[in-house]
Design a protein around this nucleic acid. Structure first.
Length: 316
DNA sequence: AAGACGAAAGTGGTTGA
DNA sequence: TCAACAACTTTCGTCTT
């Protein structure tokens, strides 16, 4: 029950006990009765200003209204249309009519050409990001990349969707919250290889840095999908950093490494997961996990064996 | 019976001539 | 443009729990 309350004075009595000692908890957004503890309202929205007014200049300078500007909107959230319908233009002096009709026509031409595309592209982007539960920041970055691609006419010869998907893929990596090509291909309904190809093309043309993805970035998400505890995650990160020191991660697929490390960590903390389960969330096969697993255990054994009982199912 | 293991053959992508 | 190559996958039979 989201509630909008402008001022706390609106609530004067507890609706449960009728008490008058009412407290507003601005951190948690609740109004609470101090006598019986009843939460009268929650989910409050703070409408107060975060600045103070001292004179007229301050007021006009600081007050603002309207939605924030966003790259993820085709018109950045700010647009004006000349003479909606016909009525407005015909209210003008007849002398000006032809001029405004001409302007309106041009506005529509420009709109149909690029903006309609952009509008559609950004709607697709919105769908992808929400389906993958990605942050608005990632959406913004994707939108920026897509706009740059359009500006450089890189979309020509490629499907718009694949460019959007690639922009998203790049943005995710930039934000350190990578999604696999498989995941993006899934929601965009485009073959994975096409997204990969477009992504490489884009990153070359736009000069986007192409650092290989770090397995670390996948760990928290995979772990949460597997319902693993923080303890296991910590353990996994330790193992991973050791693996990195020993050059066991270079040239290997980052998802496979992340999967194997999680698998091992889960064994060590007793939160057993099957290879099948881990493989599932990481989007790799059990065979790959086994291969990484073998390499890791082989090289880390002596190092880790002295602190904790490492080698897991090798007790046979 | 389910999970783990590993061999062998196949796939898509990169690299270097 | 083509061949060689590494990483990864698919498939399948065997072993372990």
């Amino acid at each position: 029950m989201a509630l909008v309350v402008g001022s706390p004075e609106e609530v004067k009595n507890c609706s449960k006990c009728g008490g008058t000692r009412i407290s507003k908890d601005t951190i948690r957004g609740e109004i609470v009765c101090m006598e019986c503890g009843y939460v009268i309202e929650d989910n409050l929205i703070d409408f107060s200003q975060e600045w103070r007014e001292f004179d007229g200049d301050d007021v006009s300078g600081r007050r603002r209204a309207g939605a924030p500007i966003s790259l993820a909107r085709h018109d950045k959230g700010v647009s004006t249309e000349l003479g909606m319908g016909f009525s407005d233009i015909f209210k003008l002096p007849p002398r000006l009519r032809p001029k405004f009709l001409r302007l309106k026509k041009w506005q529509q031409r420009i709109s149909t050409a690029t903006e309609r595309n952009l509008k559609y592209a950004l709607a697709e982007l919105k769908r992808y990001t929400s389906q993958l539960s990605l942050s608005p920041g990632v959406e913004e970055t994707s939108a920026l990349i897509y706009r740059r691609a359009v500006a450089k006419e890189l979309v020509r010869g490629r499907s718009m969707e694949s460019v959007v998907a690639s922009a998203l893929y790049a943005a995710c990596r930039e934000h350190g919250t990578p999604r696999t090509l498989d995941e993006i291909a899934e929601v965009a309904n485009i073959p994975k290889r096409e997204i990969g190809r477009t992504y490489r093309f884009l990153s070359r043309q736009l000069g986007i840095r192409i650092l290989p993805t770090d397995p670390v970035d996948y760990i928290p998400r995979f772990a949460s999908n597997l319902k693993l505890t923080g303890k296991t995650v910590t353990r996994a990160l330790e193992i991973l950093s050791k693996a990195k020191e020993m050059e066991l991660t270079s040239g290997r697929g980052p998802t496979g490494v992340a999967a194997a490390v999680l698998y091992i960590a889960a064994q060590l903390t007793g939160e057993k997961k099957t290879q099948r389960e881990v493989a599932e969330v990481a989007g790799v096969t059990e065979v790959t996990i086994r291969n990484r697993y073998k390499e890791l255990v082989k090289s880390l054994k002596f190092k880790e064996l002295e602190e904790k009982p490492l080698v897991v199912s090798a007790k046979a």
